[in-house]
Amino acid sequence: MKFGILLKEGPYNHQAADTAYLFAKAAIQRGHQVTSVFLYNDGVYNATKLMDPPQDDRHIANRWSELGGEGVAILACIAASKRRGITDEVLVENSEITGLGQLTDIAIDVDRLVTFGD
């Protein structure tokens, strides 16, 4: 099956980013294709490489970046990003800024769109 993920909350502040990540990994493990993770609302903060958590904690942006390296599109909404100062300069590797039209294409394309947030 094709899965899409919509993540609507920022990292660390809320568990949503962790649940979304663990769900994506489990879906891939079960042989599904996770086409994309679309970041919306404060979710766009997941894609900033400027985050610098303590060494013994998970690095949420790097986790998404690794998933991006495995072929999952990590997409931050442009309108939500512009509001919050997320630009191409601060994007973690393997992620990109895109429009809500892309989310619509994802919603049309996938078998399941699963939303995580607050």
Partner: peptide, 14 residues
């Protein structure tokens, strides 16, 4: 577990 979560999503829209 998370695998069970995925299985439920296979069977249903969310």
């Amino acid at each position: 577990d998370y695998e069970g979560f995925v299985e439920l999503v296979e069977q249903h829209q969310v």
